[in-house]
Amino acid sequence: MTPSHTPTPTSALQLTDSGRLRHFLTIEGLPRTVLEQILDTAESFASLGGPAVKKVPLLRGKTIVNLFFEASTRTRTTFELAAKRLSADVLNLNVGAAATVKGETLLDTLRNLEAMHTDMFVVRHADSGAAHFIARHAAPHVRVINAGDGRHAHPTQAMLDMFTIRREKGDFGRLCVAIVGDILHSRVARSQIQALRTLGAGCIRVVAPRTLLPAEVASLGVEAHVDLDEGLRDADVVIMLRLQRERMSGAFLPSEHEYFQQFGLTEARLRRARPDVIVMHPGPINRGVEIDSRVADGGRSVILRQVTYGIAVRMAVMSLALGPDAPGGAA
């Protein structure tokens, strides 16, 4: 139960001594080769037997616990499907946030689940750093996948977005990617930016009112824009972020109406981007708030394909961290 004295650097925590994926907590610090390995592995799953990914026995006998301290439908479901298609046993645990306000409870939860011979935790938590915390305290053989921690990271979402971009656009080097919306509170945006940088994207822009841009945003390696038309100019990829309703009460924005007027993606505004632009969204979408229905359902949208690819990408991450070739994961 005693915490280690000095926290292990993130890169040392995520990779084994031989440079293989141990935990998947954040994109930050991972080499390009590891990200490409995830994408290539996902490609092999996605192309298995047409539209429906067939079941493979890679994780037979392994127990995976979906440990969700924060509500989620899409992410939890795709993790569950991914685990089942890898033939793992899956346990879904939706732990109310109220039951775990104290760290000791979180540690206790962890110990109890470990005692059931869990091999992997897929964790979602409202606090930044929660997945790191669990990875640092988990037993050595246990793997941890971050399914979203606070505002910090959502690396599997970012990888499925990268997978989508690579499938639709090919090489990252030529691409201009605009991420539009609530960057300040978005773990998705942070992970996307790090993944795009690691994969060598030509230009990364973030577009938001200043109230929704984090401090020193340029330090993330992005161009910041407060004008949507400028931010969209000649973009190859536009990623819209979900706007939470509570941003109105927190005085981040005057109203949903004004937000849509200033930052909502409409067909007219999308014409600023390149003609072959693709429009992405991590979901769930707020029609008429950040995106017009005609764009969300239109020919440039790849939003539903993202969801499909999510399963293959999560299969890739789980199998790389826990599969037969993974250290400690030998069948």
């Binding site: 139960m1 005693t2 915490p3 306000v101 104290k102 760290g103 000791e104 979180l106 540690l107 938590h125 606090d127 930044s128 750093g129 929660a130 790191h132 915390f133 305290h137 921690d149 606070g150």
Partner: peptide
């Protein structure tokens, strides 16, 4: 006490 620091960063 140890528990006060044994949690995700914002909760400590």
């Amino acid at each position: 006490d140890a528990d006060a620091k044994n949690a995700p960063f914002p909760q400590t």
